[in-house]
Every structure is written in C-alpha cells, then in structure tokens.
Simulated assay, not measured.
Amino acid sequence: MARRSPTAERHADLIRTALFEVAPADMVLSRLMGACELSRWQTRQGLAMLRDLCAERGWPPVIWSRDMGYHFCASEAELEEWERAWISEKLTQFRRMITGTIGPHLALFPKSVWAGYLSDQMKAIESNLALAARPPH
C-alpha cells in the first residue's frame, strides 16, 4: 500500500463533510474549493484520497456529473453510465496515442521491436475498452 499523506487525508475529510452538508446540491469544483477553503491542487488531491478511502471503507464512490457536480453515488444505472463515459474518454486517448505517436514511430522505424510490441499491446487495450464502452443492449 502506498504511503498516505496526513494532509491529503485531512483534505479528503473536509471534502467528504462538504459533500454531506450540501447533498444533493450542485457541487462544482469551484464551490467545493470554497466550501473547504482549499486550493485547486489541494481539492484534487483530496478528491483522489477520498476516492481511495471510499473504496477501502466500502462507501459509495464519489463521481462528477453535469447535473449534480461532485457527489456520492449509489445508483447502479448512474455508476454504469459514468463508467462508460470514463472508459470512452480513455478509449479516445488510447486511439490518439496509437495513431498520433505509435503509428508514426513505426513508420519511421518499421523494424523497431519496442514500437511493434507497444502497438500490439495498445491495440489489445483499445479493443477491450471499445467493448466496455458500448452501451448495454
């Protein structure tokens, strides 16, 4: 297990408290920063720690949506929708890496063992992400 910063844990606790106090109000990042009196960086670090704590302690996960901002979510449908959107975003990033970096690398150095290996691995990941991002039938 990675070492934890006591400061990040304190920030996570401030964010958790703020989310409980305003639930289910619209808690965008700027409002969350103000409610906790944290900088943008501290708030992002606190959110990351809070997500770890939620997983560790069996709490509902913290997600962000346009409608509700940051909030604890215990809705299966909302979680699946959020996860598909997150996976879709990562799929776009993988595709850009494949076409924008690995493809040109292979074009410049067609015998590169590393680039060939990386291309194969990234395409396998792309395929799996594409399956996971599909809407349910």
Score class of each variant (00 low, 15 high):
F20M: 06
F20E: 09
V22H: 12
V22C: 00
A23W: 10
A23Q: 08
A23H: 12
A23D: 03
P24A: 05
P24W: 08
P24S: 12
A25P: 02
A25S: 09
A25V: 05
A25R: 13
D26G: 01
M27G: 06
V28D: 10
V28P: 01
V28W: 06
V28K: 10
V28H: 07
L29C: 05
S30N: 09
S30C: 11
R31H: 11
L32E: 13
L32H: 11
L32V: 03
L32D: 11
L32C: 08
M33P: 00
G34T: 09
G34V: 02
G34N: 12
G34Y: 01
A35T: 00
A35G: 09
A35R: 15
C36Q: 07
C36A: 15
C36R: 03
C36I: 07
E37R: 14
E37D: 14
L38I: 13
L38D: 03
L38H: 10
L38N: 05
S39W: 10
S39R: 09
R40D: 06
R40Y: 10
R40H: 03
W41M: 04
W41S: 13
W41E: 14
W41H: 11
Q42S: 15
Q42G: 06
T43E: 09
T43F: 00
R44H: 08
R44S: 05
Q45C: 11
Q45F: 05
Q45V: 15
G46M: 15
G46R: 04
G46T: 07
G46N: 12
G46V: 09
L47F: 14
L47M: 11
L47K: 07
A48T: 04
A48R: 14
A48M: 03
M49Q: 15
M49H: 05
M49D: 00
L50K: 05
L50S: 03
R51C: 09
R51P: 00
D52Q: 07
D52V: 01
D52S: 14
L53Y: 11
L53D: 02
C54D: 04
C54S: 10
C54M: 04
A55L: 08
A55W: 07
